[in-house]
Design a protein around this nucleic acid. Structure first.
Lengths: 153, 153
DNA sequence: TTTACTGCAAATATTTTGCAATATC
DNA sequence: GATATTGCAAAATATTTGCAGTAAA
C-alpha cells in the first residue's frame, strides 16, 4: 500500500471513530495521524512531537499524548512499553502479522514475521474475554550483544 | 511445590547467580527474594516494599529496585509494564506456562494457561537471536467490563 | 452558543542517582 | 582493608492535570 493510500485509509477510520464517539475532528488530531503514517518504525511521543515541530506544525505534547490514546483506542496504533523506557508506539497496518524480539542487554526491538504463529494466536478463544488483538514479546540476546559478550571472554 | 521448598530452590538459584557475577550476598537481597516467593500474584515494587516493612524488615526502595533488576536478570522474576502503570513483577515458578489477558478498559490482568500455545512458542527458533523466554499479552475487554458497557446502552 | 479541545505550566509519580556510612568478601 | 551495597534524599523524567483561551459543532 502506498503511503498516500495508507494515510487516506487511516483518516477514514479515524473519522469514523471520532464521529462514533462524538469527538471533535481537529486539525491537530489529523496532523498527528498523518505524521504517524509517515513513521514506519516504532516511535516515541517525543520523536513524533519533534518531527511535527520540525515540519512546522506546532502542537503541545499534551495534545500528542491525548491523541495517541485515541489512536490506540480506535486500533490504528499499538502501544508497547519495555523495561521502563518511555512508551513506544507502532502504526497498525493491516492484520497483526509480526511479533517482537527484545534484547535484554541493549534493549533493541526487532520485528519478526511468523504467519504460522499468528494463525495459532488467531485461533485462541476465551470464554468470557472478548479478545481484540495481541502482542508477543520474545526476550533474549541479539546477535550484536552475543558477539560483544564473546569478545569479553 | 510447597512454599518452603520453593524458597529454598529460589535461594539456591539466586546464590549461584550472585556468585557467578561476583555480587555480594546481602541479607537485604535474600529478604526481598523470600518476600517475592510469598507473593503468588503479580506485585509492584511498592507493595513488595510495604510488605517487607510491615513484616518488620526495613529496606530502602532503592535497594528493592536494585534487587528486582538482579532477580529479573537471573530469571527468577519477570517484569511486565502495561499502559503506563508502575512496573509489575511476577515470580517465575518452573517453565513459563501461562500468558496474560489484559482488559483495555479497566486494566485488569488475568493469567491463562494454554499448554498447546506454550508448545508452539517453545518450538520457535531464530537464526541470530538467542531467545530466553517470552511473554504473550492478549488485549480485549473482560467480562465485567462487557457487562458494564451493556448496561450503559 | 455551547463546550470540547488546545497550549502552557505546574503537578504527579515512578524510578534513578549521588554520597556518606556500612558490611561483605 | 578494599570496595560493593545500603539508605536517604534529591534529581530526573515521562505523563497527567488545571485552567484560561480558542475553535468545532
Amino acid at each position: 500500500m502506498s503511503e498516500e493510500k495508507l494515510k487516506t485509509t487511516a483518516r477514514v477510520s479515524f473519522t469514523e471513530y471520532l464521529c462514533s464517539k462524538k469527538l471533535r475532528r481537529t486539525p491537530e488530531r489529523y496532523a498527528i495521524l498523518d505524521q504517524v503514517c509517515e513513521l514506519s518504525e516504532h516511535f516515541y511521543v517525543d520523536s513524533l512531537h519533534a518531527k511535527l515541530e520540525q515540519e512546522g506544525f506546532h502542537v503541545s505534547k499534551a495534545t500528542v499524548y491525548n491523541t495517541m490514546e485515541l489512536l490506540v483506542d480506535c486500533g490504528l496504533v499499538r502501544r508497547h512499553q519495555f523495561n521502563n523506557q518511555p512508551a513506544q508506539y507502532e502504526r497498525v497496518s493491516g492484520p497483526g502479522n509480526h511479533h517482537h524480539l527484545i534484547c535484554t542487554q541493549c534493549g533493541k526491538v526487532k520485528e519478526v514475521k511468523d504467519p504460522e504463529l499468528m494463525k495459532t494466536m488467531d485461533s485462541r478463544r476465551y470464554p468470557t474475554f472478548n479478545a481484540a488483538y495481541f502482542a508477543i514479546y520474545v526476550y533474549g540476546v541479539c546477535s550484536r550483544c552475543q558477539r560483544k559478550s564473546k569478545k569479553k571472554k
